[in-house]
Amino acid sequence: MPTTAATSPTNPIVIIPARMASVRLPGKPLADILGAPMIVQVLRRATEAAIGPVVVACAEPEIARAVEATGGTAVLTRPDHPSGSDRIFEALRLIDPEGRHDAVVNVQGDLPTIEPGTVRAAFAPLADPAVDIATLVAVITREEERTNPNVVKAVLELPPGARQGRALYFTRATAPSGDGPLYHHIGLYAYRRAALERFVALPPSMLEQREKLEQLRALSNGMRIDAAVVDAVPLGVDTPADLERARALLSGRHAD
């Protein structure tokens, strides 16, 4: 059952959670990419998506200063949140206590090369009033990713040719079995506001803890997640090598 009235969101907001703590790339929100901190590059891509206002939910003041120095909007949140969804919910309550924004798109702060169209695709499934949470997938094309537990698979009810389907499960295993494509889950979400509020109040579920996948909490509690299919997985910057690749990709884009 949907958690909200049967209407499409009319006033969404994009929130980008960001924190300095990173084992493989310390301080990565402030890593320079073509003269701007990575978090500012993500902010620019999210703004180009033209979904609604964009806010960075910061765990540390130095991130907020970097965002505000370029004219962006930032809000300081508690540093001890266990997940990005908890951080964006605190930010939403701080910046919009009146509840004007009826949906939230959560864009990860380490996606500096994400296409604006990909951000829009994550929001699109909320047009269906039955959908509580929307997310993204891409078809797995590399054979080694089919069995890689670090590549999370989304098990979808997706008819041939369709570009959006209902998520039935998420897993690190190779699933489903049989002939047909496998889908790489992309951790970019759009929530109805009421769904986000409900989600962060729920305790972790058994399967969530077993698979180490937060989205299973929603499915375990009867919330509906739909996924839109996009053509490629956006580059997530987790290592120095990823950072160099992001610089090269954005440099090529600016050269066009």
Rank of each mutant, 00 (worst) to 15 (best):
M20N: 03
D80S: 15
A162M: 08
V229W: 03
V40F: 08
E211M: 09
R192V: 10
A6Q: 00
Y189E: 09
R120V: 13
I39E: 07
T47Q: 13
P234E: 14
K212Y: 12
G27M: 03
L243D: 13
I39F: 06
L76A: 08
A21M: 02
P203W: 10
A195E: 05
P2M: 03
S83H: 08
L30C: 03
L168F: 02
E143Q: 13
E145A: 10
R253Y: 13
Y189V: 14
D231G: 15
R166H: 09
S85Q: 08
A21V: 05
P176D: 09
L243C: 12
G165I: 09
D179H: 12
N106I: 09
R198I: 12
D96M: 08
A255E: 11
Y183F: 15
V67S: 04
I133L: 10
V105R: 01
V230M: 07
F170Q: 00
L30N: 05
R120A: 15
D132H: 12
S22P: 00
E62P: 03
L216S: 04
R120T: 15
R78M: 07
E157D: 15
E145H: 11
L235H: 01
T171A: 13
A36M: 10
P37K: 02
A18E: 01
E244Q: 14
P82H: 01
Q164V: 10
M20F: 00
M1A: 02
V151K: 04
F123C: 01
P159L: 13
L182E: 10
A173E: 13
A121L: 07
L34G: 01
E244L: 14
T77I: 06
V119S: 04
A103M: 03
L235E: 01
L136Q: 02
I88P: 05
P29S: 07
A154F: 02
E244G: 14
R172P: 07
V54I: 09
A255M: 11
E157R: 14
L168K: 06
T7W: 10
T118R: 08
R87K: 14
P204A: 13
A66E: 00
K212E: 12
R100Y: 11
E144I: 14
A246H: 01
F123P: 06
E90A: 11
L249V: 12
P82T: 00
A130F: 02
E62M: 03
M20E: 11
E208H: 07
D238I: 08
P37R: 04
P79Q: 04
G117N: 04
I15W: 12
E68V: 07
G35M: 00
P37T: 04
V107S: 03
E143N: 04
L126P: 01
R24I: 04
V42I: 08
R93S: 13
P176G: 06
L235Y: 06
L94G: 03
P82W: 02
T141Y: 01
R253G: 09
D238H: 15
A49L: 12
